[in-house]
């Protein structure tokens, strides 16, 4: 713990104590010792690094102490807490010192919230996002740019429902930030970056940097799964398309329904109020499906023995979603490179 942080903490001692007292009034389980450990283990290193990077000692200390207390009270920071990713993020804050020095509260709070949201989203990868975010912070000290790049990065870390907005954000970011957000080297040539973005827009199953081999119909993902094993569905689902979006449902009219977003970076399920009436079955154009054999114009036909017997099929944005009577998964077939 640096002298600057210690002095700033002492100067704010009365207020911190009053705020802690107020906090414990509303959360009686708040543990003073745990807060002490958070201050020593997580806040002090981050504050020291930010102060060394030119941050105002009082402002940095005030912001980080208050925020850590807030997160501790919400049960997401500190030892024995249920979200290890927030603590991991705080441990990574010293690596973002220049950006942290400029906007301590905004950066630390946004990062903490992002990690909470990623951890709560089934299929999202908070560890990938955090590593990428640290790398992004090395590229810029501008908090606005960093946070925008972090939003695009969240898409690549599995938040498939951010796809459209993330693509739009990536177009407005400086090239090194956009490249890092896409998992490419920061020095990626702008022309390569533009081509990558075009391909990402054109094909949701395109993975930057993995475009070798022939493009053909493949099983690009199997998503969903049995709820008892950490998946989404209690019974094998069916699929249809509503307003251009893929919908998965179980249990008939009064059953459960989800809007599904899926691409090469992951899949997310968003619960809808109720199943509602099923949409009329129709051919999943432009695909045709016959006893496991799938055809689509422009690509060679492909056969998938697992899809010999199906219960539903729906096409959305160049992808065919298929369900079978004996599986809790949704099969996604799309054009992909080998």
């Amino acid at each position: 713990m640096s002298a600057s942080f210690k002095e700033a903490l002492l100067a704010q001692r009365e207020r911190v104590n009053a705020v802690f007292a107020q906090a414990r009034h509303f959360r009686p389980d708040l543990d003073g010792n745990a807060f002490g450990r958070v201050l020593l283990d997580l806040v002090a290193p981050a504050a020291d690094a930010a102060i060394d990077a030119g941050g105002d000692a009082d402002a940095v200390t005030g912001a980080l102490v208050a925020l850590s207390l807030d997160l501790l009270g919400h049960g997401v920071l500190g030892p024995e807490r249920n979200n290890r990713w927030v603590s991991a993020g705080w441990r990574a804050l010293p690596a973002m010192a220049p950006a942290l020095a400029r906007a301590p509260q905004r950066l630390a709070a946004a990062m903490s919230n992002a990690l909470i949201n990623l951890a709560q989203t089934s299929g999202a990868r908070p560890e990938q996002w955090l590593a990428g975010f640290v790398e992004l912070a090395r590229q810029t000290q501008d908090t606005d740019l960093l946070l925008r790049a972090g939003q695009a990065l969240a898409w690549r870390a599995g938040m498939a429902h951010f796809r459209t907005e993330a693509l739009s954000l990536l177009e407005g970011l400086p090239a090194p930030l956009a490249a890092v957000a896409l998992g490419l080297p920061p020095a990626t040539a702008p022309a390569t970056l533009r081509t990558t973005l075009e391909q990402l827009k054109f094909n949701r199953w395109f993975v930057p940097g993995q475009n070798g081999g022939a493009r053909r119909l493949r099983v690009v993902a199997r998503i969903g799964g049995f709820r008892g094993f950490g998946g989404v569905f209690l019974t094998p689902p069916t699929v249809d398309v509503v307003d251009g979006a893929l919908r998965a449902r179980i249990g008939g009219r009064d059953g459960e329904a989800w809007t599904v977003f899926a691409d090469a970076f992951g899949a997310t399920f968003h619960r809808q109020p109720s199943g509602g009436p099923p949409t009329a079955a129709s051919a999943p154009a432009p695909f045709s499906l016959n006893k496991g054999r799938i055809a689509v114009p422009g690509l060679p036909d492909a056969t998938f023995p697992a899809l010999l017997i199906t219960t539903s099929a729906a096409a959305f944005e160049g992808t065919l979603a298929v369900t079978t009577p004996l599986s809790h998964a949704i099969w996604l077939i799309g054009p992909a490179f080998a």
């Binding site: 925020l67 905004r106 709070a109 903490s112 919230n113 909470i116």
Partner: peptide, 17 residues
């Protein structure tokens, strides 16, 4: 419900924004 990429930074921590 609409999906907004700004949701990423919404949560218990107050960003001041």
């Amino acid at each position: 419900k609409r999906f907004d990429v700004a949701d990423l930074y919404r949560g218990p921590a107050d960003t001041g924004a």
